[in-house]
Simulated assay, not measured.
Amino acid sequence: MKNLFRSVALVAVVFLGVQHVNAQQKIGHVNADEIFQLTPEFKTANDQLRTLNETKTKELQGMYEEFQKKQSDANEKYRSRSEANKETIDAELQVLGQELQNIEQRIQEVQRVAQEDLQKKQQELLTPIQTKVLNAINSVAKEKGYAYVLDTSAGNVIYFQGGEDISMDVRSKLGISADAQPVTPAVPAAGQPQQ
């Protein structure tokens, strides 16, 4: 009986101790995407990505223009086709048709390579910034004694009330002014060139 009493008392002490520890855990939240977009490094990377995207878009536009010109030439030749020049025009149309197919294949290849280049450049430029922001969040959380920090920008937090918003502390740690506004990304997340 005495052992049973000790066991119940031990369970009660452990249970109350766990409840006490849980009650003291601090929870904070932060909008990591916003802070990420406020960093000076992001603005620089964004400018580089915008320039690369514009360069790739211009290259593709030149190819589209070449394709449209050849297509227009083919249509003009087809309209001028008669019984007298049928064989000559048909041969020219066949050559133009092959050129159009070649240009179309080149356009598709350039689009694919452009997307890959943009994605690689995004990864190269943005990964170090993400690491820097995450390290700053972790540092603030440790300094302020938070057990959990939720990222409200991730979309996984459906509801939160309470806790502390540590965004300004993280901004301060990264040297971002309180009135700074996020920059709109130059390239969509998927890394596809803007049309």
Rank of each mutant, 00 (worst) to 15 (best):
Q37R: 09
Q94K: 12
V8F: 08
V170S: 00
H20Y: 03
E65D: 10
Q181G: 01
S82H: 10
A114E: 05
A9F: 04
Q68G: 05
Q37A: 08
S7R: 12
P128Q: 13
R79D: 06
M63W: 02
E99Q: 08
A84P: 07
K86W: 04
T44H: 09
T55I: 10
L126F: 08
E54H: 07
T44V: 13
K121D: 13
Y78N: 08
K26T: 00
L60N: 12
R81K: 12
E76K: 13
N31W: 04
T127M: 13
Q181R: 04
P185H: 12
T184K: 10
I89T: 06
Q181A: 02
V11G: 01
E41H: 09
K120N: 15
P188A: 06
P40S: 14
V18H: 01
E65W: 03
V13Q: 00
E104Y: 11
S82G: 11
P128C: 14
F160S: 15
T44E: 15
D179I: 02
N31T: 06
E59L: 15
S172F: 04
A12L: 03
Q194D: 06
F15A: 05
Q122Y: 13
Q119L: 15
Q122W: 14
Y64H: 11
E66V: 06
T51P: 03
L150F: 15
Q19L: 03
V110K: 12
T127K: 15
I103G: 02
E34Y: 04
F5V: 10
K70L: 08
E66C: 02
F5D: 04
V183Q: 09
T44Q: 12
A9E: 02
E92P: 08
K132L: 12
E87S: 10
A9V: 07
E66I: 06
R6D: 02
G145R: 01
V133S: 10
Q48V: 07
T152Q: 12
D33P: 03
L134R: 15
K173E: 05
Q119M: 14
Q94V: 05
N135C: 05
G28W: 00
A91Q: 10
K142Y: 00
L96H: 02
P40K: 07
V133D: 11
K144P: 00
K69C: 01
L52F: 07
D90Y: 09
Q25I: 01
G191V: 03
L96G: 04
A9K: 02
A23E: 03
A136W: 09
L38M: 10
T184E: 05
V113C: 06
G17E: 03
P185I: 07
F36M: 06
Y78S: 08
E143M: 01
L118M: 15
A32Q: 09
P185G: 14
D151L: 03
M63K: 14
E143H: 04
R6S: 03
P182N: 09
E164V: 13
T44F: 05
Q111E: 14
I89D: 03
F67C: 01
N3L: 09
L96A: 05
N53M: 09
N135Y: 06
K132A: 14
Q101P: 01
T131Y: 08
A12E: 01
A9H: 05
L134I: 08
P182V: 01
L126G: 12
D47H: 13
L150D: 10
Q61W: 02
G28I: 05
E65Q: 14
R112T: 14
V140P: 12
L38W: 01
P193M: 12
F42G: 00
S153A: 03
E116F: 13
I35L: 02
D165K: 10
F36L: 08
K58S: 11
K120C: 15
Q101F: 07
